[in-house]
Computed example of a mutant assay.
Amino acid sequence: MNKQIDREDLLWTFPGCPTTPGLQINWAVILCQFPCLRSLAKCEQNPLYHAEGNVWIHTQMVCEALVARPAWQAMNVTERSILFAAALFHDIAKPLTTQVAEDGSITAKGHVNLGAQMVRQILADLHTPFTIRETIVAIVRYESLPLWFWDKPQPLRSIVKASQVVRCDWLALMAEADVRGRICVDGTKLLETIEFFREFCQEHDCLDRAYPFSSDHSRFVYFHKEVADPTYAAFDDTRLEVILMCGLPGTGKDYWIDQNHPDLAVISLDRLRQQMGVLPTDPQGTIVQAGRDLAQGYLQSETPFIWNATNIVKPIRSSLIKLFAGYRARIRIVYLEVPLAQVLRQNRDRTAQVPAAVIHRYHDRLEIPDLTECYCLDYS
């Protein structure tokens, strides 16, 4: 998320991040702190792109290349920790995704998305502040963008989107460390591509900040059209606001509504399940349709309301947002998060409990919303 680090988080540091003087990395301490990294030494890579050897060798080289860069050294301690953590874990999922074909070729398809999920859990276990945690996750997810953005169907769209969740200059620095931390035949070309990425982002005013849309409405229109111009100042014709709750069962969505908007109409899928006698483990099609029918009534009468459900994956949110936007609603997403242990404890206190196995499954599938989805996004 490209959100300014909160003042109270500015003293956060990552365990093992080297400090001055010397900036020496103590790999023995890091391996003791994070034993999950040991499997990287057993994971081979395609020698065409990684002649240096296994993933652990590459990871060490990337971290050392990052620490050597003047741009990294000029950062404050928290910013250095963010980039160092991303470098340390950027290939964490390769041992789980690497496959060796019959011809000896090595691939690791899917390691980026799985790695982002794994990094989120590692950092959550360290009680990392939310904004910092999600910034590191975003760097892991978008780290290769500076290398391949120009090959995408819409290069400008790719950097504008990325800039909404993470600083593009940090992505460039991370990508540069990744290239310098490997042995490959195309290293010089890759570094030139990264420099082009920096220049392209600077030209469009989103190198060290989120792309400056003229309004929230213009941003929403841009990301919800296949082809659009980010400079276009869209006329705001919205007629009402809809709040879309997001979070695991037991995170306190009902409590948040009672404390913040007790006056608004609420479409609660939990309440509909109780009324219709449907269990959380039963097929949910009839419940969702009943909720959508209620929503259409509110939308047609221009009555603001809250859609209260888990909404943990983007496809579900996208379907609802498309419905609401079709009636010219401004969509505000409220994402609530508490530690999983607390979720399970609070769920046990609910009148309508959700089976613990279902909560664990939801937790594994969770896709945290970002600003490309809505007009306004609140994290709590």
Rank of each mutant, 00 (worst) to 15 (best):
R80F: 01
V112L: 04
V112C: 10
I159A: 07
V137P: 02
S81M: 03
F130M: 11
R120Q: 12
V77F: 08
Q99M: 07
A124H: 09
V77R: 03
I139W: 05
A93G: 03
N76C: 04
I159Y: 02
A86V: 02
H90K: 02
V140L: 06
Q121C: 12
A86H: 00
K109A: 13
T97I: 04
N76Y: 07
V160C: 05
A138I: 00
P146L: 14
L114T: 04
E143N: 15
P153V: 07
V140K: 06
L96Q: 14
W150F: 08
L96W: 15
L96P: 08
T128I: 11
T98V: 15
A101D: 13
E102F: 09
K94C: 08
Y142D: 12
V137Y: 06
F89I: 00
A85Y: 01
D103V: 09
L126F: 09
L156M: 10
N76R: 05
L123I: 01
V140E: 11
V137R: 01
H90R: 03
K109M: 15
D91T: 02
T78Q: 12
K94E: 05
E79W: 01
D151F: 04
T97M: 10
I139Q: 08
L145F: 05
R141Y: 07
T135R: 12
L114C: 04
A108I: 04
A124L: 11
L156W: 01
M75H: 03
L114D: 09
F84S: 00
N113F: 07
T135G: 01
V119P: 00
N113Q: 15
K94W: 04
E102G: 14
E79F: 00
Q73S: 07
T135H: 06
H90F: 06
I82M: 00
E102T: 11
R157F: 07
A86W: 01
F84T: 01
L88D: 08
Q121N: 10
Q154F: 14
T98F: 13
K109C: 14
